[in-house]
Design a protein around this nucleic acid. Structure first.
Lengths: 189, 189, 189, 189
DNA sequence: CATGAATGAGTTTTCATTCAT
DNA sequence: AATGAATGAAAACTCATTCAT
C-alpha cells in the first residue's frame, strides 16, 4: 500500500489514465510503464478499478480537506470565497492529471465506489454553497442561488484541466487571481 | 446517411455513450437498443468510431454555427457576449447527452478525427476571444486575457452538463440569465 | 439453445468434463474439440458454468422423471423398488459421462445452480425413501431407516460410473438384475 | 516430511481440498490457512500435486492395511466380510474429508501418481473379491460375480462420504451394522 | 436489407512456482 | 526457515468487425 512500488504503479496509472483514458489503458500498458509483467501488478493492487478508486478519492479528498481548512478560518465570506477560488484553481492546475481523472473518469467506477466519490463531491459542493450562503446572509453577496453560483465557479475553474499549460508564460497563481476578480464581481454587492 | 435507420442508431449511440461512456458501450448494446442484429448496424455506419465522430462533430458544429450567427449581427460587444453566453448555456442544457459526449468522450477519438474536433473547438474559442477583444478595444470591457476570459465563461457553462436537470424547478433560460449577470460583471468596465 | 451447434458443444463438454474434470477442461479444449475459436463458443453459451449447469440438471432431471413414472404405476412396493433399481443402474451405465459429471462435478457449481441440483437430488432421494416407506408400511419390507436404505442402494448403483465398461462381456441389464437380487434380499421380509 | 509444519500443511490441504476441491484450492488458500507465505510452503512440499498424492495414497493405503489385517485373521468368509464392511464404512465416515478427496479428486493426479493410486485401489478390490470368492468356494455365499459384488458393497459404503453426518443422531457403527445386514443378505446362501 | 455465424485479437485476472535476501 | 517479489503461462470472457446467405 505505502509500498514504493505501489506508488510507481499509481503514478503510471495517473499518467496513462490521464493521457489515454481509463478504459483505453490496459494493465499491460501499466506493466510496461513500470517494467513488470502484468501479473506482477497484482502484488500491489487488487484490481484495475482499485487504482481508479484510489486516484479519484485521493483527489477529491484533497479538495475537501483544503476547503475545510479555509472554512475553519476566521474570515469574511468574501475572503473565504477568494481563498476557495484560489485554492481550487491552483489545485486543479498543479495536478492536472489527477484532476482530469477525477473529472473525466470517475463515472467509470462501478456503483459503490462511484457513490463514495459522489458523496465527497456533494459534500464539497455543500461547503462552497455554505460559504456563499453566509455571504448573502452577511450582506456581503448579492442574492442568488448559492448552489448554481458555486457550480458556475467550479465549472470555470475545473475546465482549466483542459487548457492550462504550465509553460512559464502564465503562472497559475496569477490566473487564479484573475479568476477571483472575474467571478467575484458578479457576486459582491 | 440520411436514412431513417441511421438516425435511430445515432440516437441510440447518443443515449448510450452519454449514460455509459463510449468505451463501455458495445455495438451489441446499440443493436439491442434499435432492435437490429450487431452485423446489421454496418449497413448504416462504417464503424463505432464513426458514430462518435459524427456525434461530436455535429455537436461542436452546432455551437460554432450559432456563434457565427451571433457574431454576424450588428451588436455591441456586450450584447454579443450576452447572447453568446445565453446560446451556449441553453445549448448545453437543451442537449446534455450530446454535450456530455463532446466534452467527455471526444478525446477517445483517434488522431485524425480528434484533430478535426480540436480544430472546430479552437475556432469556436477564437470566436469567443474575438468578441471579448472587440469589447476591450471598444472600451466596453476591462483589460484581461481574452482567451482566459472566454475559457472561464465556457467552463462555467459547460459544467452544467453535469448538474443541470430539467425538472421544471428552474428553467435553463433563467439560469442562463443568471450566468450572464454573474459572468459579465467581472468583465464590464 | 436447441441449435445443432449448441449440442455439439454440449457433447464436447460432456466428453471433456468426464475425462478431464470440469476445472481441468478449458474453453480452448472445448473450442478445439468442435473446431471453433474459443470466442465463438459464446454465441451458443453464456459461460462455462452454464454448460455444467445444463449437463447436471438435465442428468438429474432424467433420473427424477423416470422415477416419477415408476412411482405412478400401480405396483407393489417390491416391484417398484425392482424397477427403480433397474432404471437407476441402467441409466447410470448407459450414460456414464453425464452421470460422472453429475456425481463428481456438480459441487463445482456456484451457490445458486448448485442449490437447484441439490433440490432435485433431495427430491429424488425422497421418492426412493417413499417407495421404501410404503413397503415397510405394507409389510413387504423389513423395518429400517428408509433414507439410509435408499442411500445404500443409490451408492451401490452410482459407483458403477467408475467401473462399468460396456465391453460386451456383461450387459448392464444383467448386472442390474444382479443388483436387484443383491440389494432386495436385505430389505424383503 | 515428518516435520510438524508439514502436517499442518497437509491438514490444511485436506480440509480445503475437501471443501473446495483440488483445483479450486490455491496455494494461497493453503498458505493463509497455516499462516505462512505462499513461497514458504515449498520448504515442506515440492508441489501442490504432491500434497494430493500423499493424501490420496495415505488414505487408500490405510484401507488396504486394515483389510489385509482382516484377511490374515482366522475367520469364516462371512465373518471376514462382516468385518470388512464394518471397517470400510466406519473408516469412510470417520474421515470423510480424506475419503472424499480419494474418491473425488484422485483422478486429478497426473498419470504416474494416478497409476499408483489405481494400483492400490485395484489391489484393495482384489482383496475384497478374494474374500467373496472364498465364501463362494466354501459354500457360505451364493454364486455371483465376486468383483461386481465387491463393487456393489464398496459403492454403498463409499457413498456415505456424501451423506453421513456425525451429528449424534446415528452413530456410524450402528449404520455399519445395518449395512452389514443389508448387504450380506443378498450374498449369504 | 438483414441475419447470425465466425473471427482473432484483446481484456482483466489467477496461479503454481522460483529465488535472492 | 521464511519472506515476498517476480514470473510467465494460462484462464474465462468481450468485442468490433466481416461476410456468406
Amino acid at each position: 500500500m505505502e509500498h514504493q512500488k505501489y506508488h510507481e504503479i499509481a503514478e503510471a496509472a495517473v499518467d496513462l489514465f490521464n493521457k489515454q483514458g481509463y478504459h483505453a489503458t490496459s494493465m499491460q500498458d501499466i506493466a510496461d510503464y513500470v517494467g513488470l509483467q502484468k501479473g506482477s501488478l497484482y502484488h500491489y493492487i487488487s484490481s484495475k478499478e482499485e487504482l481508479l478508486e484510489r486516484i479519484t478519492s485521493e483527489t477529491i479528498n484533497g479538495f475537501v480537506r483544503e476547503l475545510e481548512r479555509i472554512v475553519k478560518r476566521d474570515l469574511s465570506a468574501t475572503e473565504r470565497l477568494e481563498q476557495a477560488i484560489h485554492m481550487h484553481f491552483t489545485r486543479v492546475t498543479n495536478n492536472i492529471p489527477m484532476s482530469a481523472i477525477l473529472l473525466r473518469e470517475s463515472f467509470s467506477l462501478s456503483d459503490d465506489p462511484h457513490q463514495l466519490i459522489q458523496n465527497s463531491t456533494d459534500h464539497y459542493l455543500d461547503l462552497w454553497a455554505q460559504i456563499i450562503t453566509h455571504g448573502v446572509e452577511n450582506g456581503e453577496f448579492k442574492l442568488g442561488d448559492p448552489r448554481v453560483t458555486a457550480l458556475a465557479i467550479l465549472g470555470a475553474c475545473n475546465w482549466a484541466y483542459r487548457w492550462y499549460q504550465d509553460d512559464g508564460s502564465q503562472k497559475n497563481t496569477e490566473i487564479a487571481q484573475y479568476m477571483i476578480q472575474l467571478l467575484l464581481s458578479g457576486i459582491l454587492l
